[in-house]
């Protein structure tokens, strides 16, 4: 059994960085905790929920995907090869690791996204089992668990009352990482701590069944009053993957950018002629719920939400996926879906 002192997580990060990994860990940044590239001296924080999700390092918020040089009438495409450094997502939340199954599917469904795939192939995922959860955590309601190994190449277990960590390799990438960690890990024994108690709060199948019959329900108005239409939820979400393409050019060069986008924005579906098929926030918020709990399950047999609860923690208006789903389930109990 490979173990290390919980206080020595930064030594492990140092060692892995020394072995050539780009080490992504949750660190203190001002008054927030965020996943960021490890640099010596940073403070690792595994006790607070990071404001960003692990997707930042596989699907960055903005990236150049095409580039051209312009010289009068001459037009020369330039090669774009974004770096895909060997990366370890260290001590990320199990719900973030679980989101990668969803992103892997999305980025390889009808089109194989080379940029994502190159970064994904170079990434080793090492989640840390959660021993504490907060009121917005609901991984167990969407098929996850605080000690889930979904998407993981190795798993960190808190042990001996939080004083030690057990590193358990699960895949070849995980084994390679243990090897690279070398002396930062010791052989020894430790008793794993119990994972956090995250009660199941709703049943996604029941939510899905209600959604199938209730596209036009009045409940959407009620559920979406609070939404102010920003992108905070989508950008913090580990599974949201929508993007917008923008060309930005000067007289001498042009780039094509891929930027995150959000169905919460009015502009997301607004047509050039002015018509908007999702005319109000109720229609937009409905899409967000439908996408995660109806369309994705239908198409890929996955739930499009990992229950991390980030959207609720960060929403300036108090919107919460958990609350919406429990409310929907309540509604479903009142008027059961048609059996068909």
């Amino acid at each position: 059994m490979k173990i290390l002192d919980a206080s020595k997580l930064s030594d492990l990060a140092d060692t892995l960085a020394g072995a050539g990994y780009r080490v992504v860990v949750p660190v203190q940044d001002g008054d927030r905790v965020r996943y960021a590239e490890w640099s010596p001296g940073a403070t690792i924080r595994t006790d607070a929920f990071p404001v960003n999700s692990a997707k930042d390092f596989l699907f960055p918020r903005s990236e150049v995907i095409d580039r051209y040089q312009l010289d009068g009438d001459d037009f020369t495409p330039l090669e774009v090869r974004p770096p895909a450094p060997r990366t370890v997502l260290l001590a990320v939340r199990p719900c973030d690791a679980a989101s990668l199954a969803m992103l892997d599917t999305i980025f390889n469904w009808d089109y194989e996204d080379d940029l994502y795939n190159a970064r994904r192939a170079a990434t080793t995922v090492v989640p840390l089992v959660c021993t504490r959860a907060d009121a917005q955590c609901f991984c167990t309601s969407v098929g996850g668990a605080p000690d889930s190994s979904a998407g993981a190449d190795a798993l960190l277990h808190p042990a001996d009352g939080g004083s030690r960590l057990i590193l358990e390799p699960l895949t070849d990438k995980g084994k390679a990482l243990v090897e690279a960690a070398g002396g930062a890990l010791a052989d020894g024994k430790a008793a794993p701590d119990a994972p956090a108690d995250v009660p199941a709060r709703f049943d996604p199948d029941k939510v899905r069944a209600w959604l199938a019959d209730n596209f036009e329900a009045d409940l959407w108005d009620l559920l979406s009053y609070a939404c102010l239409g920003c992108g905070a939820c989508a950008y913090a979400c580990p599974t949201c993957h929508c993007f917008d393409m923008q060309d930005e050019a000067t007289r001498t060069e042009s780039v094509r950018l891929r930027n995150w986008d959000s169905c919460g924005f009015a502009l997301f579906t607004k047509h050039a002629g002015g018509h908007n098929p999702r005319p109000d926030q109720a229609a937009r918020w409905r899409n967000r719920v439908m996408h995660k709990f109806s369309y994705i399950p239908e198409r890929f047999d996955l739930v499009g939400c990992t229950g991390c609860g980030r959207c609720a923690r960060l929403c300036p208006a108090g919107m919460a996926m958990l609350e919406a789903c429990t409310r929907i389930e309540e509604e479903a109990r009142k008027a059961p879906a048609h059996e068909s």
């Binding site: 940044d29 960003n52 918020r61 102010l228 239409g229 920003c230 992108g231 905070a232 989508a234 950008y235 930027n259 995150w260 959000s262 924005f265 502009l267 300036p316 208006a317």
Partner: peptide, 23 residues
Amino acid sequence: KCTRCYACRAACPMCYCERCIVE
């Protein structure tokens, strides 16, 4: 740090433009 989620704009009662300059 800015992800351009525009939560600042959404939260502000004075940001009422139907189409913001940034768009």
